Computed example of a mutant assay.
Amino acid sequence: MNNILITGAASGIGAATARLFHERGWQVGLIDRDAEALATQAQALGGVWQRALDVTDLAAVEAALADFCSIYDGQLRLLFNCAGVLRFGHFEEIDMAEHARILNINVLGLVQVTHAAFPYLKATRGAQVISMGSASGVYGTPHMASYSASKFAVRGFTEALELEWRHHGIRVGDLMPPFVRTPMVSSQRFEPPVLRRLGVNLNAEDIAQAAWRQARGAAVHRPVSWLFRLMYGAGQLSPAWVNRGIMKLLSGA
């Protein structure tokens, strides 16, 4: 029996991933702040387990993990940290409350869910954590500074925990896509130059497929799309000033 718990599951990448894993026979649990959209998504999948909560609420996170995993004898095969928020714009023009919200959800929320999931992952053979990283966690991206900072944090967290949790038999990795066509991106009022130059060539289903491949593999970082795989591979070999120059060119800085 394989089970997966997905945060940010009411729409976009989380919802697409839930559909894909459910279609392929996994037992699916859904978490999201949007209770109405979450209930609709859960019903569409035949009434699967769901819980409306904010991932920054530690008590609610711990209670949800305990409840979901109790259905499966205290086991959790896969945690998919997909909850996240994004805001495009000039750094100084975005309220500090919004910067704090981005960091709290994208970093603190992810860490809290992963921490709460540990005993259930440890009790499960072949357990795994997948987190939503980003191309913005490899190259600092103008006009999304706080989001980029949050994804650098996800990258470092993933690398550290992958080494630390090997001892427990838990695989840890992340997905690194460039821009994805989801409501989170399409709802933005500001368009960064880098988005215009790179375009939005991925959809939520593409990332769901990457999550499926990651669930059957052991990569620490999984770049998504041929272009970013090329950029990521070159970036591992190039000096830092070359990578910085590429970002300057793409962003018009």
Rank of each mutant, 00 (worst) to 15 (best):
D73K: 08
W212Y: 14
I31N: 06
N2S: 14
Y120M: 04
H221S: 10
F228G: 13
E159F: 03
F88L: 01
I4G: 02
V107W: 04
G74S: 06
G233L: 12
D174G: 15
W26A: 01
P142M: 09
L250I: 09
G169H: 03
G245F: 12
Q43K: 14
V129H: 10
Q27N: 11
Q75W: 05
L195D: 07
A9C: 08
I102G: 04
H168M: 12
P119N: 12
P142L: 13
E92H: 14
A149Q: 09
A10L: 00
A44T: 08
I71R: 14
L163I: 11
P239Y: 09
A64D: 03
A63M: 08
S134N: 12
A39Q: 12
I31S: 08
A234E: 01
S238H: 09
H167P: 05
T158E: 11
C69H: 03
R189N: 12
C69M: 06
H90F: 11
T114W: 00
W26F: 05
F88T: 04
V242S: 04
L230C: 14
R24N: 13
L38M: 06
P119C: 12
G89F: 04
R229G: 14
A64V: 02
M184L: 07
L45S: 02
Y72I: 03
F80T: 02
D95M: 05
L108Y: 11
A42C: 03
